[in-house]
Structure formats: structure tokens, C-alpha cells
């Protein structure tokens, strides 16, 4: 593990405390603040959006990654690579803005932007992981007469999925962070108090939204580091 999970978890809890309605009204006694239940419900829908978007992106990314590394999809390697590189040039906010006219205000533009953002790193991660499968293992599998489907299931996939975990983790973290931007397109997320705070010049709400968004991102990151720690304990060599 490159960094302990305790740091992001601790920071997340601290920021969550600071974001709560009670703390904000202590810091800004005269301002209108958002109460804690409302923040929690926004956090719930924020997390739901992020998980849906990242989930679709991950499933599509892994599926496409496996497809372009089969002989059937081999010619698609390069175009997919250049498409992935081009997609990196589209900032999340711009992706949400571009999806807005087609899909209207609400959750849809956010989910689309999240899928796009999850898809590309996962796709690249999958291609990289499949290519890291040793040639000798594939040759041996062919030699004992396994079919391509059996090779994928019994040889490649068990070697590939542990290498995928970092890409999946960063896809979920990225989605948690990016979902905040969805508030600009009318999705109910923790970006909502930020947008309200900017519109009403309310520093308290601006701060609450920012702290709560960061808190959720840190907590998600910490939780996944923790999960990765349990999963990799002793099983995987340290790859760095």
C-alpha cells in the first residue's frame, strides 16, 4: 500500500464534522446554514450517482478492454487508444455541460459524464493488465488444448483482475469527486450547497458544500484503500 488508509479516513471525518450544520453556524453565526439531515440526504444521492456512473463505466471499460485484446477486436486497439487520449482532454465540467442540452437538467448529464470518465482509465487499465499476462502461460494453455474462452476464464482473468483493482479504485474516487460538478446541471449532489453558496454569496454554505464534498471523497478513498489492504495482504507482491 502506497499510503495508509487512516489519513484519508481521519481527514474525511474531520471535514465531515466541519461541514455539519452545527459547526457551520458556530463559524458563521449570522449566516444561513444548511442543516445536517439535508446534507446527509445530498451525500446519499451524491454517492448513489457516483456509484451508478462509475459502475456502468467500469463494466463497459472491462468488457471493451477484454474485447480489444481478443483477436476479434485486435484492430480496435489503436483507435481505442487515441479515443481514450482524446477523452482525457475533456474536463468533467465540460462533459457535463455538453451532455446538458441533449439530456436536460437532472441526473442524466452527470451519469453520462461519470461513465465517460470511468470508462477510459478502466479500459486502458484492462488492456495493460491483459498485456501483462506472461506469453508462456498463454502458450501452455494453448498447448494443453484449452479453447479461447477457457483461456480467458481460467488463465487470463485470474491474472488480470488483481492488476485491475488500482484502476477501479481510481475510477470510483474520480466519480465521487466528479459527481459534485453535476450540481451545475441540476443533479442533487454535495455540489448543490456550493452552487447555492456561490449564487447567494453565502460563504457558510459554500464552505459546507466544499468540506462535505471533500469529506465524502476522502472517506471513499480511505474505504477503498482499506479494502485493497485486506484484499492484498500477503496475497500480492508490492508492485511499486
Amino acid at each position: 500500500m502506497s499510503r495508509p488508509a487512516l489519513l484519508p479516513l481521519g481527514l474525511g471525518l474531520l471535514l465531515a464534522l466541519l461541514a455539519s450544520g452545527g459547526a457551520a453556524s458556530l463559524l458563521w453565526p449570522e449566516a444561513r446554514v444548511m442543516d445536517t439531515p439535508r446534507l446527509l440526504s445530498l451525500a446519499g444521492s451524491h454517492a448513489r450517482l457516483a456509484v451508478i456512473g462509475a459502475g456502468i463505466g467500469i463494466v463497459l471499460g472491462v468488457a471493451l478492454g477484454l474485447l480489444v485484446t481478443r483477436s476479434l477486436g485486435a484492430p480496435w486497439r489503436r483507435p481505442v487508444d487515441s479515443l481514450a487520449a482524446a477523452a482525457q482532454a475533456v474536463p468533467p465540467m465540460v462533459a457535463v455541460a455538453l451532455a446538458l442540452p441533449g439530456f436536460g437538467f437532472g441526473a442524466a448529464p452527470t451519469v453520462i459524464a461519470l461513465v465517460l470518465y470511468g470508462l477510459m482509465p478502466v479500459l486502458r487499465g484492462t488492456i495493460g493488465a491483459v498485456e501483462a499476462v506472461p506469453r508462456a502461460a498463454l502458450d501452455a494453455a494453448l498447448a494443453i488444448g484449452l479453447t479461447p474462452a477457457q483461456i480467458l476464464r481460467q488463465v487470463e482473468w485470474p491474472l488480470v483482475w488483481p492488476l485491475l483493482l488500482p484502476a477501479l479504485r481510481s475510477a470510483v474516487t474520480l466519480a465521487m469527486a466528479t459527481a459534485a460538478v453535476g450540481a451545475l446541471a441540476g443533479a442533487a449532489t454535495l455540489g448543490t450547497p456550493i452552487v447555492i453558496g456561490l449564487q447567494m454569496q453565502n460563504e457558510a454554505m459554500l464552505f459546507q458544500g466544499a468540506a462535505a464534498t471533500a469529506a465524502l471523497a476522502f472517506l471513499a478513498d480511505g474505504a477503498m484503500l482499506l479494502a485493497a489492504g485486506f484484499q492484498s495482504r500477503g496475497a500480492l507482491p508490492d508492485r511499486r
Binding site: 484519508p8 481527514l11 459534485a180 460538478v181 454535495l190 455540489g191 459554500l206 466544499a210 471533500a214 471523497a217
Partner: peptide, 25 residues
Amino acid sequence: LGTTLGLVQVVPALALFGALMPLLG
């Protein structure tokens, strides 16, 4: 430094842009 900068990357951009206004204030 690596840990600190890694943590900054986790903070959503909208949150950092938003938080800097009251903090700078």
C-alpha cells in the same frame, strides 16, 4: 509531499474552487 499532493488530488475540483473563496476571505 507525495502524500499531501496525493490528498489534494482526492479533493473534488469544485470543492477546492469553492472552499478557497471563504478561506481567502
